[in-house]
Write a protein that binds this DNA or RNA. Structure first.
Lengths: 210, 210
DNA sequence: GAATTATATGGACAGTGTCAATTTGAAAGC
DNA sequence: GCTTTCAAATTGACACTGTCCATATAATTC
């Protein structure tokens, strides 16, 4: 009973109607993002969908930018969980791990394009926010650590390789979501193009003898 | 005199005050973009800076999206001119040409970040616009044709290589402008990182014997 | 000179983010 | 138990936005 009371005290502070409006607002924001894109995520629309007054969100987010940043942090956390899980148990197979990391990003971006795109809208979110940076770092670290674990000698330093891989993944996704490319197969390898573009890079990263 | 009259007729249509308000609006739009970012480019601000009423731009651009698309097309034309000139006379040195193409993009993006970023804001511009697509194609074609001209056997098809290069360049720029990376040197090659990341890719694209 | 037609104007409207004053309601102190 | 207290929610307002409308304007065409 003591622990129950403590829990209730932590969750519900003074004057709250919903128990946790902040959480509700984030959920409604994500829902609007998915259904209408980032343009649909207005403070007033989020408040409407949460059933509160148009300025109620101001108590939890001092500005729209802060609200969108909090949403973006949740999205990065989601992506971090997926990528980390994808490269688990592939530490000794770096090339496969890179492909798995990339595949996870591709799938996430094409499944939930609005979520992926919000992550990179600098004018809408605060890239220096601590929570956001932490989650973004989890994604980047997943890539960096799998490169560190393998012992192959690289042509450039590990960070440069990580940035190269991450740049190519993000650049391809970004342009695909912009409609600049169609999903297509590479005619030589017969692989989906998003897999094929990584081949050249991986071949450049890892020396081969044959 | 006949040709003079014709010229005047073409330039100045009925009812115009400025001679060519459309051109003035585009120039002021670019100016606002450079100084204040895309958020500063509002129809009313552009009109104010051009010295016309807030609804005057409507005669030349039916919506804000159309205006921003026209600005983006001008920016893509500028980038196309630069990249095409950069790879001229390097047709027989494909690896150097790729570096020159990339270097031009990097320089353009870091010199005029707001211009570069506008090019990829799908929610603000119409990627299907003919004029825009034409100019964007000139950039992509510059890269594609320099890959076509060399006779080396590729691991993947030419388009895949072009997309890989273009993706990496764009991805790196995008994240650098977002503040995710600092400008740094690769510790192994001692090259600026934006040059170093291309090395791995180029090494993956072009077979080497030694 | 008159008619036409594209262009510019000023006003209006709904929607936005944000601020301020007020009300509400649950926890804390006596 | 009652009052105090203070965060949270409400209501109203403001300036700004993009877009639409009726009107006025000015240059070309007849």
């Amino acid at each position: 009973m003591d622990s129950v009371n403590l829990k209730a005290k932590q969750k519900r502070t003074a004057g709250q109607k919903h128990g946790d409006l902040r959480m509700v607002l984030l959920r409604e924001g994500l829902s609007l993002l998915d259904s209408q894109g980032v343009e649909g995520v207005t403070i007033r629309a989020v408040a409407r969908n949460a059933g509160v007054a148009h300025s109620a969100p101001a108590n939890h987010f001092p500005s729209k930018r802060v609200m969108l940043t909090a949403i973006a942090a949740k999205i990065f956390a989601e992506l971090a969980d997926l990528t980390i899980e994808a490269v688990t148990d592939l530490a000794d197979k770096p090339e496969e791990a890179i492909q798995a990391f990339a595949e996870t990003c591709f799938q996430f971006a094409f499944d939930t394009p609005n979520r992926y795109q919000l992550l990179w809208q600098r004018q809408l979110i605060d890239q220096d926010d601590t929570a956001l940076a932490t989650e973004m770092d989890r994604v980047y670290s997943a890539l960096l650590s799998l490169l560190r674990q393998d012992q192959v000698k690289h042509r450039v330093d590990i960070e440069t390789d990580a940035i190269a891989i991450w740049s190519m993944i993000h650049g391809y996704i970004s342009m695909r979501l912009d409609g600049n490319f169609e999903a297509a197969k590479d005619t030589v390898t017969n692989l989906p193009r998003h897999k094929a573009i990584l081949l050249s890079l991986i071949d450049g990263i890892y020396y081969r003898d044959s």
